[in-house]
Design a protein around this nucleic acid. Sequence first.
DNA 1: GGGCCTATCTATAAATG
DNA 2: TCATTTATAGATAGGCC
Lengths: 227, 227
Amino acid sequence: MGRGKIEIKKIENNTNRQVTFCKRRNGLFKKAYELSLLCDAEVACIVFSTRGRVYEFANNHMKSTIDKYKMATSNAPNTNSVQEINAQFYQQESKKLRQQIQMRQSTNRHLMGDGLDSLNVKELKQLETRLEKAISRVRSKKHDMILAETESLQKREIELEHYNVFLRSKITENERVQQHAVDAAGQQYNAIEEYLARSALQLNIMGSLEDTPSAYSLPINKSLHLG
Amino acid sequence: MGRGKIEIKKIENNTNRQVTFCKRRNGLFKKAYELSLLCDAEVACIVFSTRGRVYEFANNHMKSTIDKYKMATSNAPNTNSVQEINAQFYQQESKKLRQQIQMRQSTNRHLMGDGLDSLNVKELKQLETRLEKAISRVRSKKHDMILAETESLQKREIELEHYNVFLRSKITENERVQQHAVDAAGQQYNAIEEYLARSALQLNIMGSLEDTPSAYSLPINKSLHLG
DNA sequence: GGGCCTATCTATAAATG
DNA sequence: TCATTTATAGATAGGCC
């Protein structure tokens, strides 16, 4: 049917193929519709184009027809979909997990000293023993940590004391050096004063004295970081 | 196409409908095949006859085409099957529950005095406080229960002592009654002996003495039940 | 504009009553 | 089977993103 006879093989011309696809698809769906109506049949067609677009016909709902098809073709128990199996699995999992939580919650409450009414004296004694054990561990751990912290603080204290001693010795030395410089300056001043009454030399000497302490600051900082 | 034009409506004649169904079904599948080949398309058709028999065409595998169709049409969220939604729901639920368990487990371990390395001194102090609180509650509860038990035992002790006193008084009375009886019997014996040397009268008197204590057993049992 | 899809027209092949 | 209806090849134009 058509202007000429065609061979049933893939149409290479893109445009032609596209047009034929559109026409024949409509033709197919029309035939499907007629079949369903004339013969009181349930018909469903699914068509994917080359580019993956989907077209469909179903005189009934596609989903129900597919389900019916699956029912009809699978007497085997694989009718259950992967999703259904998943749902069942996770549903059971949730149930178990909830039970676990219930148990843990109960234990937890007992360990927190709540909900004790359901326990008898023997169970209360066991719980007490457990809590004593726990508290002793916690205390031991706390003790260790505080001890470690104390030790660390003591170490730091000793370091700081050493540093203190060092600083004091530096100050003493500085004062000594400063005294020397002042003395020397005084002597120089007296000597030079007679020759250069308007000179600013004394200022330069004061500047060099101020720089001197910074030579010690580096080792001092290092010692602090170790502490 | 045929000897005459037909209206597209259900063919009422059973045989005609059957024949047309067969012909048009084959025609549909042929068209589907040609479409798939000519246009390089993926085509699937499902046909159910009135009597529920299934016929199908698929140039590819029917299952994969259906899956692909479901994938393609499930951009809309309502396409997800109930099972799929369930699966997702329970999957998330399980995940959450597992996290909860993880947390509770951690808390639990801490309350049991395990896994303390991750805690700092402050947290350890809090934990200690919690445990102290818990243990004091447990001890209080235990104390209450032991106290209640002790009270109950003391009550029972008192009851038993009372019962004891009662029993002793009964025994004393019994002995007295018995003595009287024996005395009476002795006196009677002596008196009657002289008149009826072969009489069995003394045996009847002994029997009435044996029945006497049972009159007291009822109130005794009642007192026990109250205790 | 350009790619992609569909509609229309007509002669003819194909389906089918 | 086969006369006749129907589908559709081929060409082209229109609509949409």
